[in-house]
């Protein structure tokens, strides 16, 4: 069985020193080893942005696609070969701005993909513009007088869209993050894990210290008596904490994944099945048109 070291490669990430994305990379590597995967059984599909580079920094199959489209690509991979473990990953701009349409529909569709968002509340790779996750009043190069749009709450949207697994974590909490990614991989259906991943270069407001001060952690005292199977309680908790809550927020273990609801869909990956029609199968299909 592979260890987390076997999910490492020799590529040096182009992230800034201190970037929150480093621990997310490490958490994915650890979680993959902990659930017993071999590198070839994992496909990491990423979007565009600083965080989108992650698929190249993990020793597994990886596809770095186009901006905002990691989720449809990842769902295509999973439907083509459900024997694989598929992780989709990208930033808050990728998932909640340009790709928001796909995020909501991937949640509803519930294909068994784990989606890890590296949420730094800003556009980093383009050098500091506002994101849907930037707070009102947040000053950036594109909002010199402060953002005048309201901040988007991905957890509330995910709950409304019928998510079956919602978690949130913080890149300083490697232990919690690793455990949540493991749980997300094991979950039957789509799992959304939003991770606060501070941008040390362009975001001087939502810093490591700021998160430490403001986060409510359900794995601590704040989580006592919290029932993650209660959707209403989850919504209340998210709203009460202004979205600054970490841990497993909500999980529905009853709803089957998309793959398990497709009629006739087999356990064996489609990619491993024979594709040639027999003469008999073909003649039967052709008979529709006689």
């Amino acid at each position: 069985m592979a260890t987390f070291k076997e999910f490492r490669n020799n590529v040096k990430p182009n992230w800034c020193p201190g970037c929150g994305d480093f621990s997310i990379q490490a958490a994915i590597q650890r979680a993959a080893a902990n659930v017993g995967l071999e590198p070839e059984q994992l496909a990491v599909i990423s979007g565009i942005g600083c965080s989108g580079r992650i698929s190249g920094y993990i020793n597994a199959y990886g596809l770095h696609g186009i901006h905002g489209r990691a989720l449809p690509i990842a769902q295509g991979v999973k439907l083509a070969n459900r024997e694989l473990t598929v992780i989709a990953s990208g930033g808050d701009g990728d998932g909640f701005a340009i790709g928001m349409g796909h995020t909501v529909h991937a949640i509803r569709r519930n294909v068994n993909v784990t989606y890890i968002v590296m949420d730094n509340q800003i556009y980093g790779l383009t050098k500091g513009q506002t994101s849907p996750r930037s707070a009102e009043g947040f000053k950036t190069k594109s909002t010199p007088e402060g953002s005048i749009e309201s901040v988007l709450s991905p957890l509330e949207i995910a709950l409304s869209a019928g998510a079956t697994f919602i978690a949130q974590s913080f890149s300083s909490d490697l232990k919690q993050l690793t455990a949540l990614i493991e749980a997300g991989i094991k979950h039957e259906g789509f799992s959304l894990i939003n991770v606060f991943s501070p941008c040390v270069t362009f975001n001087k407001v939502n810093t490591y210290d700021w998160f430490k001060e403001n986060i409510v952690n359900l794995d601590g005292e704040a989580g006592e008596g919290y029932d993650s199977s209660n959707r209403l309680a989850a919504m209340t908790k998210v709203m009460e904490t202004n979205g600054l809550v970490t841990g497993l927020i909500y999980q529905d273990t009853k709803r089957r994944s998309y793959e398990n609801l497709i009629s006739g869909f087999q356990e064996q990956g489609l990619a491993n099945q024979d594709i040639k029609l027999s003469r008999e199968e073909f003649e039967k299909l052709a008979a529709d048109f006689v």
Binding site: L63, I66, P72, I73, G76, L79, A80, N81, A271
Partner: peptide
């Protein structure tokens, strides 16, 4: 893009 993902995965 879903079709691209599935083709990449061999179907």
């Amino acid at each position: 893009t879903m079709a691209i993902g599935a083709n990449y995965a061999g179907v």
